[in-house]
């Protein structure tokens, strides 16, 4: 059974249909890329999955249960985490705090324990700290050591993206949604991101859905690619198949009226 499924999901805003009768399925351990021109509805799909919007029609099934209409934080607790297209870090908090804050859903110290600082509280705090450091260590030397206490706004752009992923990892997700993780990166950083996504699946066992425009990343790491246009699925399959699909090419590049059609 697929880990995650969208079944005939639709969503409109006012008169605009943003997602239209969309169905897709993702198996455990897959890396699926969602591509399509801007405005195709890709981020909307992500928002629907994570509960930011409720679908107008259709079902969203994760790990066997329907999650449509649940609160955002409930969905996160169930095991879906995401990063944001335009980065939404807690800029005035330190790097380690950004990550530690995401442990909220997985921890349980109550008021009594917190105010009285019981041994149980301390144990949990140390555990949170240790796990947070470990998540940050996933990215090599960049976000560790003295960096832990630095405010997040002091980070470079690429490091901010890494921090966002680390923070998402802290919620112990089964399914990770990455919204344009390579946006704004130079070729070397893009290569690193591609490898990173692979590591996330191989070492941490995550299932990943990613939205990307950079075809290098998409081709380099995806098991499967799904193309959207105007809220509808127009192609699905391996990267080679989708990249050469005429509908996909038309969506990205437009149709040449003068071209002789085979």
């Amino acid at each position: 059974m697929a880990l995650f499924e969208l079944q005939n999901v639709s969503k409109h805003f006012g008169g605009l249909q943003v997602v239209s009768n969309l169905s897709l399925a993702v198996e455990q351990g897959e890396i699926v890329s969602l591509i399509g021109p801007n405005g195709a509805g890709k981020t909307t799909v992500l928002n629907l999955i994570t509960g930011l919007y409720a679908p107008d029609a259709g079902k969203i099934v994760f790990d066997g249960r329907s999650i449509a209409g649940k609160d955002v934080h409930q969905i996160t607790r169930l095991g879906i985490a995401r990063t944001f297209q335009n980065l939404r870090l807690f800029l005035n908090m330190s790097i380690i705090e950004n990550v530690m804050s995401a442990a909220y859903a997985r921890t349980s110290a109550n008021w009594f324990q917190i105010i009285l600082r019981t041994p149980g509280f301390w144990k949990e705090e140390q555990h949170i700290r240790a796990v947070a450091e470990q998540k940050l260590a996933f990215f090599g030397e960049r976000l560790v050591g003295y960096r832990f206490e630095q405010p997040a706004y002091s980070l470079s752009y690429a490091n901010r993206r890494r921090l966002e992923i680390a923070r998402a990892l802290m919620t112990e997700p089964k399914l990770l949604l990455l919204d344009e993780p390579a946006a704004g990166m130079n070729p070397k950083e893009t290569q690193e991101v591609t490898e990173l996504i692979g590591k996330l699946r191989d070492e941490l066992g995550l299932t990943i859905i990613l939205i990307e425009h950079d075809m290098g990343v998409v081709g380099g790491i995806s098991d499967r690619v799904i193309a959207l246009d105007h809220g509808e699925k127009i192609a699905e399959g391996s990267f080679e198949a989708v990249a050469t699909d005429p509908l996909v090419i038309e969506a990205y590049l437009g149709r040449n009226e003068n071209m002789v059609r085979k």
């Binding site: 930011l52 955002v72 934080h73 944001f84 939404r88 807690f90 923070r167 998402a168």
Partner: peptide, 11 residues
């Protein structure tokens, strides 16, 4: 800092 992001991180 960011209510939306906080909610998305499980809070």
């Amino acid at each position: 800092e960011d209510e939306l992001a906080a909610e998305a991180m499980g809070m």
